[in-house]
């Protein structure tokens, strides 16, 4: 059973629908026991990092997440909360990944938010099994994690940022696999194979 963590930050239906299309059995839950006993855990997230982190702390789930040993996938804000901290709302996050999330300032006339389909390169994680550098994934974000020792994919938008991070059983994507067509579906399948 896959647990999608519900910490009251908003709408989780795109992640739910993607799992539904994959035929995976999942439960949307804020219950520590259910999360601990899940085969896989997904930490989604929408909105603003400061508020999202406050909700997560309020739900009492931070220590639960830090103690998980099964595969955990953070998506977008969910992944940012797994970093050290975010400039958005000057937020201290969980510190699973050794990376800081900063406001994107790509320059060169590039627009923020970074929105649309962009390529990921230097793929170096089981998440990207059977994939080649240069595949397109869907992004919508204004903040991004810098490069770090845990970077397992990069995207170049003015500067390089971490498109994906991994540390042991913890995975994170800045892009939205649940909205990234066939490529995104493969990434979710790869995660669920772990």
């Amino acid at each position: 059973m896959i647990a999608v963590i519900d910490y009251k930050t908003g709408n989780l239906c795109s992640v739910e629908n993607a799992l539904g299309r994959l035929g995976g059995e999942y439960v949307v839950t804020g219950d520590a026991g259910v999360i601990r006993s899940a085969s896989h855990v997904i930490l989604p997230g929408v909105g603003e990092a400061g508020q999202a982190m406050a909700s997560l702390r309020g739900s009492g789930l931070v220590d639960v997440i830090l103690g998980l040993t099964q595969p955990v996938l953070g998506i977008c804000i969910g992944m940012q909360l797994m970093c050290r901290g975010s400039e958005e709302g000057d937020t201290q996050c969980m510190g699973i990944f050794d990376a800081d999330v900063v406001k994107m300032e790509p320059g060169q006339g590039l627009k923020v938010p970074h929105m649309g389909w962009d390529t990921i390169e230097k793929l170096d994680s089981p998440l990207f099994r059977d994939m080649e550098d240069g595949v397109y994934v869907y992004y919508v974000h204004s903040y991004a994690p810098q490069l770090s020792a845990h970077t397992v994919a990069v995207t170049d938008y003015g500067t390089l940022f971490s498109a994906a991070l991994q540390r042991g059983n913890f995975f994170g994507t800045q892009f939205h696999p649940e909205k990234s067509g066939a490529v995104g579906e493969q990434i979710l399948k790869n995660f669920l194979c772990k």
């Binding site: 709408n11 239906c13 629908n17 919508v140 909205k179 990234s180 066939a182």
Partner: peptide, 28 residues
């Protein structure tokens, strides 16, 4: 649509309040 489509989609037509928009967001 949200259940069946794996790329982003936008909806419009007749949205005149923040509640109209919210209902569509919740629908996916």
């Amino acid at each position: 649509i949200a259940e069946g489509i794996d790329i982003p989609f936008t909806v419009g037509g007749g949205i005149s309040s923040v509640d109209d928009a919210g209902r569509l967001l919740l629908a996916g």
